[in-house]
Each structure stands twice: as C-alpha cells, then as structure tokens.
Amino acid sequence: MLYFLQQLINGLTLGMMYGLIAIGYSMVYGIIGMINFAHGEIYMIGAFISIIAFLLLGVLGVTWIPLALLLVLLIAMAFTAAYGWTVERLAYRPLRGSFRLAPLISAIGMSIFLQNYVQLLQGANVKAVPPIITGGWILAEQDGFAVRISNVQIMIILLTLVLMAIFSWIIANTPLGRAQRACEQDLKMAALCGVNVDRTISLTFVMGAALAAVAGLMATLYYGVVDFFIGFLAGIKAFTAAVLGGIGSIPGAMLGGLLLGLVEAFWSGYFTTEYKDVAAFSILVIVLIFLPTGLLGKPEIEKV
C-alpha cells in the first residue's frame, strides 16, 4: 500500500511534466492540424536554458533560491518561446496549404536540426546539475519503508496547477484565447472575420514553447541531468499523452499526461524499468486503434 502511494506520487510528478509538454502538441494540433514534431526539442532547449540561467544567476550573486527560481522560470520561458516562434516562422508557416506530408517532414527536419544544433553548441556529454531544491517530507512509514515527497515534487505539482489555472483563464477570457478558439473551429472563416490568424498561430507556438520550457526546468530540477537527446523520448511520450487525452483538447492533454506518468511509474515500480518506454508506445498504439479520439477529444466526422 505504501509502495503504491510512493509510485502514485512519483507518477503524478512525472505526469505533470508530460502534461505541460503535451499541451503544446495539443494546442498546435487543434489549430493547424499538424504534429509539431520539434516540440520535444523545444522542451530540451528549455532545460538547457534553465541550467544556463541558474549558473548565470549564481555568478551574478542571486542566491536566494525562490527569487532565483522565479527569474530562471521567466528567462527560460522567454527565450524558449523565442525558439518556438522562430521554428513556426521558418519551418511551418511557408508550408501552410502545401501537400499533406510537407509540414510533418519539415517538422522532423527541424527536430533533427535542433538536436544537433544544441549538441554542437553545448557538447554531447550529459550535464549533471547539483540539486538546487533539497529536502522533502516523509508522509508515512511502515516496516522500514517510507513514503517520501520531495520539495521538488511539491514544487512541480504546485507550479503546474498554477500555470494550468493561468492558462485556462487566458484561453477562456482573453481576446487571444477567443482568437485561438475561433481558429480551432475554422481557420479560413476566422481569417475572414478579421482574426489575425498568423499572429494567433505564432502566439500558440509561443505559449506551447513557454510551457515546454517550464517542463524543461522541472526536469532539470527533478532529474538533475540533461543532455541534447532528452527531447526525443519526452516528445514522443508527451505526444502519446496528448493523443491519450484527445488531441486538440487542453484538459485532455493534462489528463493524458497524468495517466501516462502513472502508468510509467507503476510499470517501473511493479514490473521492470527496461521496458517502460515500450509501455508508453504500446499505450499510444492501443489508444490510437481503439480510441482514436482519445478520452476527451471530439469525434472527427469524415467529410465527404
């Protein structure tokens, strides 16, 4: 039972991070109907920028952890968002209305490019970060087994909840959110009604990238290691989460992320860690076959 509780906590933490990345996939898919394959790389870039920002703040003498964290968060979100914006501008915008596979191939190219770009600039070795947030709490103890929740985990869960609240508010109440929802319904019609579609799409990428940056920061704090390749797996898993929750649906992305995180935690907790990635992929395949619209997605009616 306690073991179960521990895996639950671990799974939730993991799931929050997947969820944050998954939102980026889901929003972009909702609006322009493409899989932004390079989104995992954006998350990886977010993680790198976070570490660099931490070290830089350390050099500048900002050592009070809460302030440093806040600054790092803002820096990582801003610069990563710039990457998200540029990717859309260079690799996707010129392809709107091109043939079916073009944006996807372009996205794969962009993903390969970014991975190698970071590898060339930062080196291929794994970067290990000293723990920045330490400590934790023991929730329960029995027969020598203790259920722990670390401060990092608490921070991840709280931060995700706060961001989700802000984010839902933006979508529901601001002109930008309204424009986004309009574009999601019908891109052409939204344009005819005076919605600046290019700008809305750009901002969607910016928002998605900013959230991925937060996930990158969290991963840095949680795992303490980062390398140029982390975006690949995280990207696929977050995509799985987005599909599981129903691609195009933002609450769905979060829900899918949580479920996937839990599955992974329990899988490695009770079975074997070697095949935990296989578990994620299998879920993806099974969901796509039996529940192609995901848990919260809208059914797609084939227009003839």
Binding site: F48, I51, I52, L55, F79, A82, T86, L121, Q122, G123
Partner: peptide, 30 residues
Amino acid sequence: FVAFVLFVPLAGFKLVGQEGQLALEYRPHW
C-alpha cells in the same frame, strides 16, 4: 535581432565541467 535572442543563451554560454561542478564558459564572439 531574432537570431541574437536565439543565440545568446545557447551559443553565448557553454556548460563545461562534469558531475555537479558545472561552470559557464563565455563565448560572446560566437
């Protein structure tokens, strides 16, 4: 300008060192 913003964090600083002793190398010229 956009390129500058993109390059500052990733090209301008390089993470060097191993195992918990990361340090920054400054590369403004890059």
